[in-house]
Design a protein around this nucleic acid. Structure first.
Lengths: 206, 206
DNA sequence: GTCTATATTTGGATAGAC
DNA sequence: GTCTATCCAAATATAGAC
């Protein structure tokens, strides 16, 4: 009998080609928007014809799903790389800064991951899992900093999302809103601080 | 000679039909999204065939433009209907509440007016004018309340946009974020208040 | 003004040869 | 695995009869 080779060169080549296809799709999305991806264009960019893509992906949505999975993995990796300094305000700033930078670094990726914009596309549970894990880490970290009130947590995420939303809608490519990460975090911290130091200052009953 | 009739019945009928078409387009957009509007569907809903729409609008984008104009007029009317109470915090709350309510009352309208989501569509200057006027009124009103620092103004609009963005993305139809209008406004007000009462506390030089 | 018929384009997906 | 050829569907827009 012949020994099995320890590496499967065929499988490796296949996954390289899959990665190439995904990269081409990202490129097109950055130029023409997420909805502007067409199989013809993707194929052309990797030197193929459209039908050949079906040897690597079952459908166009399967390509979106692979893109989503990649983006979610990157987001999770970034969140896990955040190391607490011990100073709550600094940690909050670092967290919001990471989120805003992640969005501005690749608006199309942000759109795919955090907004529901592609009609008919829903990420598969496997692709979604890293995103869930990342958000859970963020929640736990805020809780560790003493921010466990759900309303306060929602306010914090809204603040980040708002800076990004306004930046993208009104001045894409600029920093008029994203440069407000520090003041925004300070505003938030000053607001939740009294509740932490003086007990439940605000209403808990409702 | 015959006198001209004071009313042009033909023109009135025509503008009634145009309004019907716009209404049908809104209905479809609320069901299938802005991009889901097709001339076939719009026509069917007003009892026509698609080509007949071209007697009323030059193109599909002309329909989007008329929708944009209507939405912008409604927004302006709402902003003009806001009457200051004299209490700055109350006025700020009312302003943000109006903005959030306007968005949640018709997410698709919000999307058309305040985000750039339809590829290839740009509102005409005439349609855009009311929106510009409304934002100018809002800016002047905040300035009257003592908030003239551009950064603070941007922070305030980001706060409203953030509540809406999170609400739409994570819990469409709910109120987990939009019910935070009052706390958010209080947080903001507490942040800008010291600057107003004690002079320029925060950095102005940068 | 409205219709039928049609042009034109586009894009996802499949069949089958090589 | 990749190709050509093709299918199928959808959508905007136009031509021309009535």
């Amino acid at each position: 009998m012949l020994d099995q080779p320890t590496r499967n060169r065929r499988a490796e080549q296949r996954s390289r080609t899959r990665a190439e296809i995904i990269d081409a799709a990202w490129e097109i999305a950055r130029e023409s928007g997420l909805a502007g991806i067409t199989l013809r264009d993707v194929a052309a960019r990797v030197g193929m014809r459209a039908p050949s893509l079906y040897s690597y992906f079952d459908s166009k949505n399967a390509i979106y799903d692979a893109m989503f999975a990649e983006g979610a993995r990157d987001f999770l990796a970034g969140v896990e790389a955040l190391t607490p300094t011990g100073d709550p305000l600094t940690d909050l700033k670092n967290g919001m800064r990471f989120y805003v930078d992640f969005a501005t670094a690749d608006p199309v990726r942000y759109q795919l991951l955090f907004q529901r914009t592609i009609p008919g596309f829903e990420p598969s549970p496997e692709s979604y899992a890293p995103a869930v894990k990342a958000l859970e880490i963020a929640r736990a970290e805020l809780s560790r900093l003493g921010i466990s009130d759900p309303g306060a947590l929602d306010l914090f995420t809204a603040l980040g999302a708002g800076l990004i939303s306004q930046q993208f809608a009104n001045e894409p490519g600029g920093d008029r809103w994203t440069r407000l990460v520090d003041p925004a975090t300070e505003m938030f911290y000053a607001y939740v601080l009294p509740a932490r130091d003086q007990g439940n200052r605000r209403e808990r009953r409702q």
